[in-house]
Amino acid sequence: MKHHVKLFYSFFQVAVRREMAYRGTYLAGIVGQWVSFAATFATIYILVSSFGMVGDWNGAEVMVLYGMDKLAYALGASFFFNFSSGLSRRIRSGEFDGSLTKPIHPFLHEILSCGYNIGYVSHISISIIVLVIALSALQYHITLHGVLLILSMVVSGALIQGAAFIASSTWSFFTISDHSVLDLMYDVRDFIHYPITIYPRGIQFILTFILPFAFMNFYPAAALLGKEIPTGYPAFLPYLSPVVGVLLFALSILLWNWGLKHYQSTGS
């Protein structure tokens, strides 16, 4: 374990150095992402508050929903985005085969060597700011219990997102194509920008039990703010995020390893 922490640290240093080689670009990129996200946050807030409510959630509550999603997404993506989006390219170029020869498990080596993506600093910072503003606008009484709840929800969300990245990259073992599965994942994720109660029951079911992205923000935020969940669903569901997160993460690694077993090198 200690060995792995040390390994992670040295790979992390490489990632930071790589980004800092273009310091100006890095900073300009961070600011650019702030501009872009601030615009998205602001337009959604303007929309919801101009109508008052969307599916019984007001503007500030939707900001909690959206901020939580962005934060959990960014945490998951900082570890797994490069890994997932790059896998098919690394397979095609033969770089991936290098990971098979290393003295640690190929999955671990892939994650460490693809680099922690420090670009997500901008997602993380802006979503924390939005969360703080939205929660104080809602006069949310902050307690130790509340902070722990939020943290555990965000970590679970990050695990769900990580699982989504790992699972969609598994596709690359079977076909030498672009990452259209990853694109599809993003299209499905877009559904959770709004409270899932606005969708028909079929879609709520899919987002809860089949592709459970709703556990990244809707259920945690519903637990935090005491909002209604879809009728007929058990009342403990909003608290299940950690279980869902750990379970999906484990399953996605099993899936990835199963994919690896069926992998045949391109020979390049």
Binding site: Y22, G24, T25, A28, G29, V31, G32, Q33, V35, S36, F37, A38, A39, T40, A42, T43
Partner: peptide
């Protein structure tokens, strides 16, 4: 004039959205 410019589209998107 820039070394890398992937970030330019972020600014443009922000303004276009807003």
């Amino acid at each position: 004039w820039l070394q890398r410019c992937w970030f330019l589209s972020w600014y443009l998107n922000g303004f276009l959205t807003f």
